[in-house]
Amino acid sequence: MAKALVVFGSTTGNTESVAGYVAKTLEGEGMSVDVKNVSGVQAAGLADGYDLVVFGSSTWGDDDIELQEDFQPFFEELDKANLSGKKVAVFGCGDSSYTHFCGAVDAIEEKVGQLGADVVAASLKIDGSPEKDEAVAWARDVFKNAA
Protein backbone atom coordinates (compact mmCIF):
# COMPACT_ATOMS: atom_id res chain seq x y z
CA MET A 1 0.00 0.00 0.00
CA ALA A 2 1.34 3.43 -0.95
CA LYS A 3 2.02 5.74 1.95
CA ALA A 4 1.46 9.52 2.08
CA LEU A 5 2.42 12.21 4.55
CA VAL A 6 0.47 15.46 4.89
CA VAL A 7 2.34 18.21 6.77
CA PHE A 8 0.49 21.46 7.45
CA GLY A 9 0.90 24.75 9.26
CA SER A 10 -2.32 26.47 10.26
CA THR A 11 -3.08 29.50 12.40
CA THR A 12 -6.82 30.00 11.89
CA GLY A 13 -7.72 26.37 11.16
CA ASN A 14 -8.39 26.76 7.42
CA THR A 15 -5.22 25.01 6.30
CA GLU A 16 -5.76 22.30 8.90
CA SER A 17 -9.25 21.69 7.47
CA VAL A 18 -7.83 21.31 3.97
CA ALA A 19 -5.18 18.91 5.28
CA GLY A 20 -7.99 16.79 6.71
CA TYR A 21 -9.93 16.79 3.43
CA VAL A 22 -6.79 15.84 1.51
CA ALA A 23 -5.92 13.03 3.93
CA LYS A 24 -9.42 11.54 3.89
CA THR A 25 -9.50 11.68 0.10
CA LEU A 26 -6.12 9.96 -0.26
CA GLU A 27 -7.22 7.31 2.24
CA GLY A 28 -10.39 6.81 0.22
CA GLU A 29 -8.21 6.17 -2.83
CA GLY A 30 -6.39 3.41 -0.92
CA MET A 31 -3.35 5.16 0.50
CA SER A 32 -2.11 4.93 4.06
CA VAL A 33 -1.89 8.55 5.29
CA ASP A 34 -0.15 10.24 8.20
CA VAL A 35 -1.16 13.83 8.99
CA LYS A 36 1.20 15.99 11.01
CA ASN A 37 1.14 19.56 12.24
CA VAL A 38 4.42 21.16 11.20
CA SER A 39 4.94 22.40 14.77
CA GLY A 40 5.51 18.79 15.85
CA VAL A 41 7.89 17.56 13.13
CA GLN A 42 11.52 17.91 12.23
CA ALA A 43 12.65 18.23 8.62
CA ALA A 44 15.54 15.77 8.88
CA GLY A 45 14.52 12.53 7.16
CA LEU A 46 10.88 13.57 7.05
CA ALA A 47 10.13 11.99 3.65
CA ASP A 48 11.77 8.65 4.43
CA GLY A 49 9.27 5.81 4.03
CA TYR A 50 6.68 7.88 2.15
CA ASP A 51 5.69 7.66 -1.51
CA LEU A 52 3.96 11.05 -1.50
CA VAL A 53 4.49 14.14 0.65
CA VAL A 54 1.89 16.93 0.71
CA PHE A 55 2.70 20.30 2.27
CA GLY A 56 0.15 22.92 3.31
CA SER A 57 0.80 26.43 4.61
CA SER A 58 -1.13 29.63 4.86
CA THR A 59 0.41 32.93 3.72
CA TRP A 60 0.67 36.13 5.73
CA GLY A 61 2.05 39.55 4.96
CA ASP A 62 1.38 42.20 2.37
CA ASP A 63 4.90 43.47 1.64
CA ASP A 64 6.78 40.16 2.00
CA ILE A 65 5.76 36.55 1.61
CA GLU A 66 5.40 35.12 5.08
CA LEU A 67 4.80 31.44 5.62
CA GLN A 68 2.62 30.37 8.51
CA GLU A 69 4.72 31.04 11.63
CA ASP A 70 5.27 27.38 12.59
CA PHE A 71 6.10 26.49 8.98
CA GLN A 72 8.88 29.08 8.60
CA PRO A 73 11.60 27.31 10.67
CA PHE A 74 10.69 23.99 9.05
CA PHE A 75 10.96 25.58 5.60
CA GLU A 76 14.48 26.77 6.41
CA GLU A 77 15.50 23.16 7.17
CA LEU A 78 13.63 21.56 4.26
CA ASP A 79 16.85 20.54 2.51
CA LYS A 80 17.25 17.87 5.22
CA ALA A 81 13.90 16.19 4.46
CA ASN A 82 15.21 13.80 1.74
CA LEU A 83 12.77 15.03 -0.91
CA SER A 84 14.94 14.18 -3.94
CA GLY A 85 12.92 11.89 -6.20
CA LYS A 86 9.84 12.05 -3.94
CA LYS A 87 6.40 12.86 -5.27
CA VAL A 88 5.24 16.12 -3.68
CA ALA A 89 2.19 18.38 -3.82
CA VAL A 90 1.56 21.76 -2.18
CA PHE A 91 -1.57 23.60 -1.05
CA GLY A 92 -2.35 26.67 0.99
CA CYS A 93 -4.88 29.19 2.11
CA GLY A 94 -4.58 32.93 1.71
CA ASP A 95 -6.35 36.18 0.97
CA SER A 96 -6.42 37.42 -2.61
CA SER A 97 -6.53 41.03 -1.43
CA TYR A 98 -2.84 40.69 -0.45
CA THR A 99 -0.04 41.36 -2.93
CA HIS A 100 1.38 37.83 -2.61
CA PHE A 101 -1.76 35.68 -2.68
CA CYS A 102 -0.71 32.25 -1.38
CA GLY A 103 2.93 33.18 -1.85
CA ALA A 104 3.92 30.53 0.70
CA VAL A 105 2.63 27.87 -1.70
CA ASP A 106 4.84 29.25 -4.48
CA ALA A 107 7.87 29.43 -2.16
CA ILE A 108 7.42 25.84 -0.95
CA GLU A 109 6.81 24.52 -4.46
CA GLU A 110 9.90 26.29 -5.77
CA LYS A 111 12.08 24.98 -2.95
CA VAL A 112 10.96 21.35 -3.20
CA GLY A 113 11.60 21.51 -6.94
CA GLN A 114 15.12 22.78 -6.28
CA LEU A 115 15.61 19.88 -3.88
CA GLY A 116 14.80 17.37 -6.63
CA ALA A 117 11.21 16.53 -5.73
CA ASP A 118 8.70 15.61 -8.43
CA VAL A 119 5.80 18.06 -8.05
CA VAL A 120 2.88 15.92 -9.24
CA ALA A 121 0.07 18.48 -9.49
CA ALA A 122 -0.52 22.18 -9.86
CA SER A 123 -0.64 23.73 -6.42
CA LEU A 124 -3.97 24.39 -4.73
CA LYS A 125 -4.46 28.01 -3.64
CA ILE A 126 -7.57 28.70 -1.62
CA ASP A 127 -8.91 32.21 -1.16
CA GLY A 128 -10.42 32.54 2.31
CA SER A 129 -12.43 29.70 3.81
CA PRO A 130 -11.79 26.31 2.24
CA GLU A 131 -14.44 24.45 0.32
CA LYS A 132 -14.39 20.70 0.77
CA ASP A 133 -15.26 19.92 -2.87
CA GLU A 134 -12.30 21.93 -4.17
CA ALA A 135 -9.86 20.20 -1.79
CA VAL A 136 -11.25 16.74 -2.57
CA ALA A 137 -11.02 17.28 -6.35
CA TRP A 138 -7.43 18.49 -5.99
CA ALA A 139 -6.46 15.55 -3.76
CA ARG A 140 -7.91 13.10 -6.30
CA ASP A 141 -5.80 14.76 -8.99
CA VAL A 142 -2.72 14.49 -6.76
CA PHE A 143 -3.42 10.80 -6.18
CA LYS A 144 -3.94 10.10 -9.88
CA ASN A 145 -0.70 11.88 -10.82
CA ALA A 146 1.28 10.25 -8.00
CA ALA A 147 0.15 6.71 -8.78
Rank of each mutant, 00 (worst) to 15 (best):
A2N: 12
A2F: 03
A2D: 14
A2L: 14
V6H: 11
V6A: 01
V7R: 05
G9S: 08
T11Q: 11
T11Y: 09
G13V: 11
N14H: 14
N14M: 08
E16A: 12
E16C: 11
S17V: 09
A19Q: 10
Y21N: 01
Y21R: 07
V22W: 05
V22T: 12
K24Q: 13
T25V: 09
T25G: 02
L26C: 06
E27M: 13
G28N: 10
M31E: 11
V33P: 02
V35W: 03
N37Y: 11
V38E: 01
Q42W: 04
Q42R: 13
A43P: 01
L46H: 08
L46S: 05
L46Y: 05
L46M: 14
A47W: 02
Y50E: 08
D51G: 11
V53P: 10
V54D: 07
G56H: 05
G56P: 05
S57V: 05
S57M: 04
W60L: 11
G61L: 04
D62G: 11
D63L: 13
D63G: 06
D63P: 07
I65A: 09
L67P: 12
E69I: 03
D70I: 10
Q72H: 09
P73W: 02
P73S: 10
P73K: 06
L78W: 09
D79P: 00
D79T: 01
N82S: 10
S84N: 07
K87E: 00
K87M: 07
K87G: 06
V90S: 05
G92F: 09
C93D: 13
C93G: 12
G94L: 13
G94I: 08
S97G: 11
S97W: 10
T99Y: 13
T99C: 08
C102E: 06
G103V: 08
G103I: 10
G103K: 02
A104L: 04
I108A: 09
E110V: 05
E110K: 15
G113A: 12
L115M: 04
L115C: 07
G116L: 03
G116W: 06
A117N: 07
D118V: 08
V120D: 14
A121E: 14
A122H: 12
A122K: 15
L124C: 04
K125A: 07
K125V: 00
D127Q: 13
G128E: 00
E131Q: 14
E131N: 13
D133G: 14
E134N: 08
A135F: 01
A135T: 00
W138N: 03
W138D: 04
A139C: 09
R140Y: 02
R140E: 14
R140H: 08
D141R: 08
V142M: 04
F143T: 02
F143Q: 10
K144L: 05
N145F: 01
